[in-house]
């Protein structure tokens, strides 16, 4: 029900606690840039962080460690070949 894509933060305007500023970031992926809002993001991102964008809002800042674990778990699951048990 909700398309959202990860993009990298390359510019940040405003700050987390300055309520009157416009909390926005410029995000980028494969040469495409978009200005997004940071009003609702769970963790204020740093430059270089990846955020998940939905309808012009960052909804989550990726933790690179979590993302790595995510990929590793998938790779491990994929590496399980027939015969070494337990999985099914």
């Amino acid at each position: 029900m909700c398309l959202a894509v990860p993009m990298q933060v390359i510019e940040i305007n405003g700050s987390e606690d300055d309520f009157l500023s416009q909390p926005t970031a410029l995000v980028e992926s494969d040469g495409i840039k978009k200005e997004v809002r940071l009003d609702i993001v769970d963790r204020w991102p740093n430059l270089g962080d990846y955020v998940i964008i939905h309808a012009g809002f960052a909804i989550h800042t990726l933790d690179p460690q979590e993302a790595k674990t995510n990929l590793r778990l998938l790779q491990e699951m994929a590496a399980v070949t027939h015969g070494d048990g337990e999985t099914a």
Binding site: L3, V5, M7, S29, D30, G31, I32, K34, I53
Partner: peptide, 12 residues
């Protein structure tokens, strides 16, 4: 191209 792909992902 990578940028067309990215644009398409963003806009669905």
């Amino acid at each position: 191209s990578a940028s067309v792909r990215a644009g398409c992902e963003i806009l669905g």
